[in-house]
Nucleic acid binder design. Structure first.
Length: 186
DNA sequence: CGTAAGATGAAG
DNA sequence: TTCATCTTACGG
């Protein structure tokens, strides 16, 4: 695999178009990554900004480590850790274009509209049945059902500010595939 | 301990 | 725009 996970900013852009696949007992679901955000230790909006805590420990592990966190009392979000070990960098996966296992996704999301299946960080996590048990495992070594494959090559990528944060709102560390319907917000 | 905020989503 | 809902982090 030629995927570069050495730096969260580079990786956030490069991960666009990659196919994310999860195999569970229920079946296989997959989708192309169409929206990402980069986070790092020099970034006041990052969970890793104040250093390692029990929650953010996976962010300081090797590249490819899966970081799943719980937020707003309801939702889980999923990140892929990048950068050298101990560097506190990660890429938040914000949206997918669903490819395989649409029925399973509709079932898990309890929704009919396919456009709303995976167009948000907590939505895709629910559609692909990613939970806290994936936290700390590595997406590159098959230690969970989750893995990456090469997918499509984005024709055009938009770089802009991140969503839902109150700090470092000037940083343009969000990337998405231009004109893709499954991006969470324009 | 007490408490406030949070990388969201759905409904009204 | 509001609210559901609860873990994490941090201060006392």
């Amino acid at each position: 695999m030629l995927l570069d996970l050495s730096d969260s900013l580079k990786s956030a852009k490069e991960l666009l178009g990659y196919k994310l696949i999860n195999e569970t007992a229920d079946g296989v679901t997959s989708g192309y990554i169409v929206e990402t955000e980069a986070y790092s230790m020099i970034d006041t909006a990052s969970h890793s900004f104040k250093g390692m805590t029990s929650r953010t420990k996976p962010m300081f592990d090797v590249p490819g480590t899966i970081y799943v966190y719980f937020t707003y009392g309801i939702h889980y979000c999923f990140n892929i850790v990048t950068g050298p070990i101990d560097n506190g960098q990660a890429v938040l996966i914000r949206a997918l274009q669903p490819i395989d296992g649409l029925d399973l996704m509709r079932q898990r999301r309890d929704i009919e509209d396919d456009l709303k299946l995976t167009n948000g960080p907590a939505k895709l996590v629910q559609a692909m049945a990613i939970d806290k048990s994936y936290n700390g495992k590595n997406i590159l070594d098959g230690s969970s059902g989750l893995r990456l494959e090469s997918g499509i090559k984005p024709q055009a990528v938009v770089q802009t500010t991140r969503i839902g944060i109150k700090k470092a709102t000037d940083l343009e560390w969000r990337f998405y595939i231009k004109n893709n319907q499954f991006v969470s917000r324009k």
